[in-house]
Design a protein around this nucleic acid. Structure first.
Length: 463
DNA sequence: ATAGGGTTAG
């Protein structure tokens, strides 16, 4: 009895060390416990599995299964659920599937948590059909879905472009005996904002108010971000001041939203003010905060400082992502250092990052703006993926060099690939053709643009 | 022990 109580105490200690990301101390607590004759339970190990998954790596977490067996116990459904969640966070589908099978082979029956996580995994990998199959299985099986099941489903539908299906499911929630939570509303408001359905988002916000729930910091940050995205900066900043005056948590997410918007609009004084405030607020800076700071440095031309920050965060145990590197590449481009940017792009490639469209677009634009249009065209040919931003930069670049015929060809191939292009880019080409006496070419281009548009809307109707 | 908001390019 005393020992079991001690085990529970040990679990509380281990959990608190894990929460503080101090895994060395967590292990030390276990060693000390064993010395005193207190044996860890599966729960103790499960706590470790989750922490190793989150903060160290999947392999180390997985190796705990061996330790559980050595201690004469068996891993349980929680052990596997934690590992599956870890693999899901890292988007490792094959490992998720392997773990699932291994769990079943070990005679452990997956529970609702397992299926919820699996569903989330499929959604985050862009496999909505598979996720939906799991959802149907849950509904038809003996499990009763819980609120998380519905929230994961709604979020997954929104993220995969099925906002209308999400709304339909939302309207049917009551039939499933489920009352929307604040999380549910936040998921839908965000989905509507991302699909630029601001009116519907506002209605949802009102509905949230009427339901008796209070919007929280996440709701506010979502709506604020939406304002910035639709270039209503004043309105966004107003929401920020409401948040602050009403005493809502103003955390790293909110700071990054505001700082990025200020940097984007060139309001560097205000951006610096909030950056300073964020840094002295005691909020632990995470990767996204660092990326936001790096981008701000770059905007001021301090690429070296941004690079230092990149080293600093890696020394601090964080791992740079493609945003970090793209921000540096963009910074180098904007500072006119195309060679440096190309070197960094190659470095990204060497350390295992996949093709990054944004980084390539930065380089295309920089080459165009520095008068190296032929180099830009060669670089363009080498790109495995292109989008409307790639084309826009090049079309403007070609117009700047008065190569209107070439610009016209590129414009058409953009439209014919089903992409849209800025109106101002079309106008630059048409005006250019006319001003250089190619009136006939301009007319032809205009009608071809019209044909491309009709064709595109036919495609839209078909899909 | 799973779910919601933040960072890059024309």
């Amino acid at each position: 009895m005393i020992n079991r109580l001690s085990t529970r105490l040990m679990n509380i200690c281990v959990a608190s060390c894990c929460k503080a990301r101090n895994l060395v101390k967590a292990e030390a607590v276990i060693v000390d416990g064993i010395r005193l004759g207190i044996l860890p339970s599966v729960t103790t190990y499960n706590t470790l599995v989750d922490a190793y998954c989150r903060f160290v790596g999947l392999d180390v977490a997985y190796s705990i299964i061996g330790r559980i067996k050595e201690a004469g116990m068996r891993p349980d459904v929680v052990t596997y659920n934690s590992l599956i969640a870890g693999a899901t966070r890292r988007q490792l589908l094959s490992q998720v599937v392997d773990l699932f099978n291994e769990m079943i082979d070990a005679g452990i029956t997956p529970d609702l948590w397992s299926y919820n996580t699996l569903m989330h995994c499929f959604f985050s990998l862009g496999k909505p059909d598979e996720a939906n199959r799991i959802f149907q299985d849950i509904i038809l099986s003996n499990f009763s879905p819980c609120s998380t099941t519905f929230n994961i489903m709604l979020h997954g539908l929104c993220k995969n472009g099925y906002i209308n299906n999400a709304l339909m499911l939302f309207r049917n929630l009551e039939r499933h005996g489920f009352i929307p939570e604040i999380v549910t509303y936040n998921i839908l408001i965000n989905g509507l904002c991302k699909h630029r359905r601001l009116g519907a988002a506002r209605e949802m916000l009102q509905e949230l108010g009427k339901s008796g729930l209070e919007p929280n910091a996440i709701t506010y940050t979502t709506v604020m971000k939406c304002c910035f995205r639709s270039r209503r900066y004043e309105q966004g900043l107003e929401i920020m001041s409401v948040m602050r005056s009403k005493g809502y948590t103003f955390d790293g997410f909110s700071y990054c939203t505001v700082i990025a918007a200020l940097v984007k609009t060139g309001k560097m004084d205000e951006a610096n003010y909030y950056m300073e405030e964020m840094m002295i607020s005691g909020i632990e800076l995470d990767l996204v905060s660092y990326n936001t700071l790096m981008n701000s440095y770059c905007k001021e031309g301090k690429v070296e400082a941004a690079n230092q920050l990149l080293d600093e965060l890696e020394k601090g145990g964080l791992e740079c992502d493609q945003y970090s590197h793209t921000i540096i590449i963009n910074g180098l481009c904007k500072a006119g250092n195309i060679e440096g940017a190309l070197r960094h792009l190659q470095y990204m490639n060497v350390i295992g990052f996949k093709f990054n469209l944004v980084a390539h677009n930065c380089l295309i634009d920089a080459m165009c703006k520095s008068g190296q249009i032929d180099r830009a065209m060669r670089f363009f040919e080498s790109m495995e993926i292109k989008d409307s931003i790639t084309y826009t930069s090049l079309v403007f670049g070609l117009c700047r060099e008065r190569r209107y015929k070439c610009a016209s060809k590129l414009l058409l191939s953009c439209l014919r690939s089903g992409m849209t292009i800025l109106k101002s880019a079309k106008r630059a080409v048409l005006d250019g053709l006319r001003s250089s006496g190619l009136t006939n070419e301009a007319k032809k281009l205009q009608s071809k643009i019209r044909v491309a548009r009709t064709y595109r809307s036919d495609l839209d109707l078909l899909s």
